[in-house]
């Protein structure tokens, strides 16, 4: 009896340790990838490890990072948001639409005070997020399809507002945060850092953050625990849209123009950053820390490939392969976790 008890204890401890290792697998793998990439590019190109270039990388990942905060919430809930880039684009265009443009800009826009324009832009992205939330939770459309439709809707709004033209001016506040800098640090990097930090604090230290992990970990059990699963999922869809909206406004200022299809590459970049970082597409595992690692993996990869002499067409293929490798690791780590649970 006592022998079997200690046996059981030993097995439990062993299982606990193995489970710990397996659980950390999804955090370790992306981090190793990042270190390998940095080591490789430092070796391959002398211009890679300079202070200037570090600043470049930070700036380059900022827009993705802001979108990534909301997307991390969504993916932790085991949902997806494909409308992030379109919503960002539409919000950026809305804020420009309500700002006085130079006389040569041929857009029938509606100039309003900066604060009002910003408020309307927030209203726009929040509204789009609410539509996503209602479609998913009340009507019951899978998020993949719902946000696919929203991707088109937001793109349509962008197209209607600018009608193929380009707007340049945004309110001063937006233009400062998107294109200005403070003490040598671009404001957009500061905003991204603050939002990532807030996202991390919400996920780790608040009740709402706990609910996100719980819903993503086991939706059925969350419902049988009496949680309002629909409200939680609806809320993260709105948060995602607002983050996209902020990224859209600052992005427009950062790029210096507001036009159609400006953010298209950010859809895949943001999803890749979150998933490459090790946040599980099946929900419940991961977090902002993972997203930050994922952002840097992508940022270093994109930036580094520019520093080494490489066929720019091959670059696209390499990015795809790295993304595939990360997804394989993600699924594999998930399987390990499931066997650990059984």
């Amino acid at each position: 009896m006592s022998a079997s008890l200690t046996d059981e204890k030993r097995r439990a401890r062993h299982a606990g340790f193995a489970a710990l290792l397996r659980g950390q697998m999804r955090n370790i793998a992306p981090f190793l990838t990042l270190i390998c990439l940095i080591a490789f590019f430092s070796f391959a190109s002398p211009s890679f490890v300079t202070l200037d270039n570090v600043g470049n990388i930070l700036t380059q990942v900022s827009v993705t990072g802001i979108i990534g905060v909301g997307l991390t919430f969504v993916i932790l809930c085991a949902e997806i948001d494909l409308s992030i880039a379109s919503v960002a684009n539409a919000t950026g265009i809305v804020v420009a639409y309500f700002t006085a443009q130079e006389s040569y800009v041929n857009i029938a826009n509606l100039p309003l005070p900066g604060a009002v324009a910003i408020a309307l832009a927030f209203l726009a992205c929040t509204g789009l997020g609410v539509v996503n939330a209602l479609g998913i939770t009340i009507i019951g459309i899978p998020s993949f399809i719902m946000t696919l439709a929203m991707m088109q809707i937001a793109a349509g709004i962008s197209a209607l507002l600018v009608r193929g033209q380009i707007a340049y001016k945004v309110p001063d506040l937006v233009s400062t945060l998107g294109a200005g800098s403070i003490g040598g640090i671009p404001w957009i990097v500061v905003v991204a850092a603050v939002l990532l930090l807030v996202g991390h604090l919400v996920l780790t230290y608040t009740r709402f953050g706990r609910y996100i992990y719980i819903v993503g970990g086991n939706r059925e059990a969350a419902e049988y625990s009496g949680l309002n699963v629909k409200l939680i999922i609806g809320t993260v869809m709105v948060i995602s849209a607002i983050c996209s909206g902020i990224a859209g406004m600052l992005g427009v200022a950062h790029f210096g123009s507001a036009q159609q299809n400006e953010f298209d590459t950010y859809l895949l970049d943001a999803i890749a950053a979150v998933v490459v970082g090790g946040t599980s597409l099946f929900g419940g595992r991961g977090g902002i820390g993972n997203t930050i690692v994922g952002l840097f993996v992508l940022g270093v990869l994109n930036n580094g490939l520019d520093h080494v002499k490489i066929d720019s067409f091959l670059k696209i293929l390499i990015r795809g392969l790295i993304l595939l490798a990360a997804l394989v690791i993600n699924v594999y780590a998930q399987r390990l976790r499931e066997t650990a649970e059984d």
């Binding site: 009740r207 059990a221 969350a222």
Partner: peptide, 19 residues
């Protein structure tokens, strides 16, 4: 399977409904 969060520690499971 429909009452527990297997990958979470015990204390998060026992607090989920009364959080």
């Amino acid at each position: 399977r429909s009452m527990l969060f297997h990958a979470e520690p015990l204390y998060k499971n026992t607090s989920v409904s009364t959080l």
